[in-house]
């Protein structure tokens, strides 16, 4: 069998420097084009879209371009009587969008618009007896939702409302033989879910429960010759996975286990020189999701033009400091 590595090639035609101004324009324009087909198609994740855009803007130092009052007004219209927050007006509440809304309001220093007790009650109601969380009152169990719940409550200062030990126990039960984590006990290790599990352990101060060397090794194995990182073995590199792997390594104190220069080169190559924004891989179409994770990865890699990002929350470090949160980070 030929030993073909699934990867991309980066050449001189790809951008090598950060096109900051272009990205600011890209994000600022994104929400203004409401007749855009894609904009309507993504209504069901609008709240997360706003979190990606606003966080990206703040990392670029241009949050003032955004209409904060309008954002806050939108969020307040998405709060359900249960305390859960929906992706958009008229949708059902969901944990994913509840976290996005809380992240946005923390960023804007406007948490006071939330009925914090109600939101807390909603999040706590999604915990199952085994410690896991579902995404909404109907939905499936997934370690993503464990992270959302714990991140959300910690941002609100209300971790006391859930059984943290049980939540940790469930996440640990999803630990695999290769050192990684999946969505449920026995599910394959996956970089996005590893980020969620490591993030939960970072917030709850339980990172010592993992074998950092073994997991760090698995994570650093995600780097391909192009410098980009994939999410699972034999998958193509992707900017969003680059962030999840890198952020996990940062929490484990092992960021230096990847080759920073080549990763930076890969991420920069994913910028769209015309439209602005980042795509998953060089040459693809940009979107706000990959734009935030591209910028966040560059920030973690130490890019001086960007504000510092916190690896656990994927939020500006100064916001985490303002909230007096100290998510655990290991050092080796």
């Amino acid at each position: 069998m030929a030993n073909l590595v699934k990867d991309v090639t980066i050449n001189d035609s790809h951008p090598k420097t950060l096109l900051l101004k272009r990205h600011v324009e890209y994000i600022a324009a994104y929400g203004n084009n409401k007749e855009d087909f894609e904009y309507c198609m993504t209504e069901y994740l609008r709240m997360s879209g706003m979190y990606w855009g606003l966080t990206a803007m703040e990392l670029m130092g241009h949050l003032h371009y955004m209409d904060k009052a309008q954002v806050i007004e939108f969020i307040s219209q998405c709060i359900d009587s249960s305390g859960g927050i929906s992706s958009s007006i008229g949708h059902d509440p969901h944990l994913l969008y509840t976290l996005s809304a809380v992240q946005i309001l923390c960023l804007l220093d406007a948490v006071s618009v939330l009925p914090v007790d109600k939101v807390t009650e909603y999040v706590a109601s999604l915990q199952k007896p085994d410690g896991s969380f579902t995404g909404d009152k109907w939905g499936e169990v997934d370690t993503r939702f464990s992270f959302c719940a714990v991140a959300c409550l910690s941002l609100l200062g209300r971790l006391d409302a859930i059984d943290v030990d049980k939540a940790v126990e469930f996440v640990v039960s999803c630990h695999n033989f290769d050192g990684g984590f999946g969505s449920q006990p026995g599910s394959e290790s996956h970089a996005g879910l590893i980020y969620c599990c490591v993030g939960l352990l970072s917030i709850t101060g339980r990172l010592h429960l993992i074998d950092g060397d073994l997991l760090g090794w698995w994570l650093s194995e995600r780097q391909l010759p192009s410098g980009g990182l994939n999410g699972r073995p034999e998958k193509l590199p992707d900017v969003c996975y680059s962030w999840w792997v890198l952020a996990s390594l940062a929490m484990l104190g092992r960021l230096h286990w990847v080759h920073k220069q080549s990763l930076e080169r890969f991420v920069l190559a994913c910028q769209d020189t015309e439209l602005g924004g980042f795509s998953d891989r060089p040459g693809d179409i940009p979107d706000p999701f990959h734009t935030l994770f591209g910028l966040a990865a560059l920030s973690l890699l130490g890019n001086g033009e960007l504000g510092k990002v916190n690896p656990t929350y994927c939020m500006p470090q100064h916001v985490i400091d303002r909230l007096k949160l100290r998510p655990q980070v290991l050092s080796v």
């Binding site: 409401k34 007749e35 309507c40 209504e43 007004e73 939108f74 219209q77 007006i89 008229g90």
Partner: peptide, 21 residues
């Protein structure tokens, strides 16, 4: 029918996909 309400700013008349809307 209830048109999409995307917050305080009214949605512009849409030509992208009549069927979808």
């Amino acid at each position: 029918p209830v048109p999409q309400d995307d917050g305080p700013h009214p949605v512009v008349a849409i030509a992208y996909s009549e069927k979808f809307r």
